[in-house]
Design a protein around this nucleic acid. Structure first.
Length: 395
RNA sequence: GCGGCCGUAGCUUAAUGGUAAAGCACUCGGUUGUGGUCCGAGAGCAUGCGGGUUCGAGUCCCGUCGGUCGCC
């Protein structure tokens, strides 16, 4: 029922097809995120027309109040949502960080230059032990425990095609010693996740490589996780401190990982990223990406364009009658002026979010299509150079 | 007409008689396994007007204009 076939490789980059019970995914692929079972501002059908063949849903958001039980009674995510597209769920490990320690430290997966401070120690409402994690729900403040067994149970009940092992996502601030200790825990949890998953035939599981910003720990993570019988691999966590360092470090770590992961299995770079990150990462052997950037940026008034991102709420666009991106062929760029999008974003009209989400998702999905063509035509290097030069023009 | 209360930044409000602040709005930046959130920085020609008391008035006094509430 599950299969990953690589059709062509150019350097480290790969073009392939991932088969699931609900359909095929052409890789490299971008996976839009529908956290609570909805892409904010677009229907699954709309997004499918734009070129998406798979969606990511968050276990964590269905976990805190046991809504995965409701979904199970409805027949699983596909029946509950009324769609037949391939789906994946993450394990909830990231939210323990992003809604727990990350929120305490006012940082995300990638640290902004302004908030480098303190130690990488966890504080506040999250307790991490060998058994699992205990923390307060960001939704209602109640105590919630997640263990590998519980995450996998929830993911089996949700019933997405592709699921992830439960891991610990560390802060960009984590020390070497903490990261090393955490990595051992993630490995233990990987084994327990597989144990809780055994005999499952309708789903396939990805293991997660952690190790933070430390190359030797990343290498160790890749070796250990690939020794286990996972269908594919997720690469998670953070890669460095400052914004620029984080990007460069991520690229060099991906180079390292592509040498240490078995080539025949799919690789999903979790939570990345910006268009340039995706291009650079495909170049270094990644097959799948999920990221909130197209939709979250849309809600914040930011549009992805071939010349970099622009924030349409800026005063400069108030009377700008040009399209968002002259070289984009999406319906929004063909039909609407920047001035109108500026107006909608300023007034926080829902329609503004819809239009920007449409454009941003088109932009990412179209980029993936171009990447696949470039691999097919042996000119990924040219695409990478041209795309990134142009993308950085205005930024 | 009489009486009370109120006039501070574009808006809503602070400020024992002692350097006139804050939030929103505005300008710019940030957000990478989703909180339409949040954070950071910036720009603001503000005490209705005219007098008086005082070393010093947004603040106290007089007048005036505007608003608001109450009463014939």
């Amino acid at each position: 029922m599950f299969n990953f076939e690589i059709k062509k490789t150019v350097g480290k980059a790969r073009k392939g097809v991932l088969k699931t019970p609900h359909g095929e995914i052409k890789t490299p692929a971008f996976v839009p995120v529908a956290t609570r079972g909805a892409l904010k501002g677009l229907s699954f059908e709309d997004c499918s027309v734009l070129g998406s063949s798979i969606f990511m849903i968050n276990t964590f958001h269905f976990y805190c109040r046991k809504e995965y039980e409701t979904v199970e009674r409805a027949g699983g995510l596909h029946d509950f949502l009324g769609i037949e597209y391939p789906l994946m769920t993450d394990s909830g490990g990231f939210q323990v960080f992003s809604l727990g320690a990350g929120r305490d430290q006012k940082t995300g997966k990638i640290l902004s230059d302004a908030v480098i401070k303190n130690e990488g120690k966890r504080k506040g409402n999250v307790q991490i032990k060998e058994e699992g994690v205990l923390f307060r729900s960001p939704f209602d403040g109640s105590k919630v425990e997640i263990t590998p067994e519980k995450s996998i149970e929830a993911q089996r009940k949700l019933g997405a095609d592709l699921i992830f092992a439960f891991d610990e996502c560390t802060s960009p601030l984590a020390s070497y010693n903490y990261q090393k200790e955490s990595l051992q825990r993630t490995h233990l949890w990987a084994e327990r996740s597989l144990e809780a998953f055994k005999d499952e035939k309708k789903q396939a599981m990805f293991g997660i490589v952690q190790g933070g910003k430390f190359p030797d720990l990343r290498e160790e993570g890749a070796r250990f996780i690939s020794s286990l019988p996972f269908f594919g691999f997720g690469i998670g966590g953070s890669f460095g401190e400052s914004y620029g360092d984080s990007k460069k470090n991520m690229y060099s770590i991906l180079e390292l990982l592509s040498k240490n992961l078995p080539p025949e299995k799919p690789r999903h770079l979790l939570g990345i990223g910006e268009p340039e990150d995706v291009v650079e990462s495909v170049f270094r052997g990644m097959d799948l990406f999920d990221c909130v950037i197209p939709t979250r940026f849309a809600r914040h008034g930011t549009a992805l364009t071939s010349k970099g991102r622009i924030n349409i709420t800026g005063a400069a666009y108030k009377e700008d009658s040009s399209p968002l991106d002259k070289s984009c062929s999406c319906q929004v760029c063909l039909g609407y002026k920047r001035s109108y999008l500026h107006h909608l974003a300023r007034k926080k009209e829902i329609y503004g979010i819809i239009l920007l989400s449409h454009h941003n998702l088109f932009f990412m999905l179209n980029l993936m299509e171009e990447i696949r063509e470039a691999i097919e035509n042996d000119n990924l290097k040219d695409l990478k150079r041209d795309f990134i030069n142009k993308y950085r023009e205005n930024n």
